[in-house]
């Protein structure tokens, strides 16, 4: 494989890696908050999150495209067809997944656990941190599910990234292109790499879960 191929693989990992980290940082606290507190409008938010978990990536791509297009509200930032635009689209796809899985994980914990942690002298921030630690296996699941969904996604990154050679070309968009051009060997090679990455992520996830159980 040539250096260009390595660049494509690296960009895929960087874009999806940054996107999942941003989604976790923005999504886990929201999931915990929704899981712990009852307030007016919460049910609506939960419904929105659940809907967001099933957003068609192509629709996300279109919305982000319209936002970043030259005439769009964020057009002046000139982000369209950059890796940043791709990260943004992937965050929009992964964030509801992270929030939803975190919410389910927190709700899955014993309701009395919160009282028990407080009763041992935890401050509010110590309580949050302890709940995250108690729910960490589910959070690893959120991480794996989110990463898996965005690294294999093609519609949104194609629309907002543009599949520009050497700039925004990632594995999925490269596979589409190479297949179209009849370079099946290259397309298959990239697909194998993508599968190996998916396998690796899942293996890591299972390993962490097994370790946590013992």
């Amino acid at each position: 494989m040539g250096p260009e191929l390595w660049q494509v693989i690296a960009l895929s990992l960087v874009v999806s890696g940054v996107a999942i980290v941003v989604s976790m940082v923005l999504g886990v606290p929201v999931g915990i908050f929704l899981g712990l507190h009852r307030f007016p409008g919460r049910q609506l938010l939960v419904t929105l999150v659940n809907t967001g978990m099933g957003l068609p990536p192509v629709v996300v791509g279109l919305v982000v495209f319209l936002l970043l297009a030259r005439a769009g509200p964020l057009g002046s930032l000139e982000l369209l067809y950059t890796p940043t635009a791709m990260i943004l689209a992937q965050v929009v796809i992964a964030w509801p997944l992270v929030v939803g899985v975190t919410l389910a994980a927190i709700q899955g914990l014993d309701a009395r656990l919160r009282l028990q942690i407080l009763s041992l002298g935890a401050s509010p921030s110590q309580l949050y941190w302890k709940l995250v630690r108690e729910a960490r296996l589910s959070l690893v699941a959120a991480l794996a599910a989110g990463f898996g969904s965005i690294i294999s996604e093609v519609g949104a990154v194609m629309m907002v990234g543009g599949n520009i050679r050497g700039e925004t070309r990632v594995m999925t968009t490269a596979i589409v292109l190479e297949t179209r051009q009849g370079n099946f060997g290259l397309a298959i090679a990239l697909s194998v790499v993508l599968l190996l990455i998916a396998l690796g992520v899942n293996w890591l996830f299972t390993w962490v879960q097994q370790r946590g159980r013992v």
């Binding site: 014993d110 028990q116 002298g121 302890k130 960490r136």
Partner: peptide, 13 residues
Amino acid sequence: QIAMAFQDPLLFA
């Protein structure tokens, strides 16, 4: 200055 224990041990990981 106060601590509590329940019917279920509710042990942490």
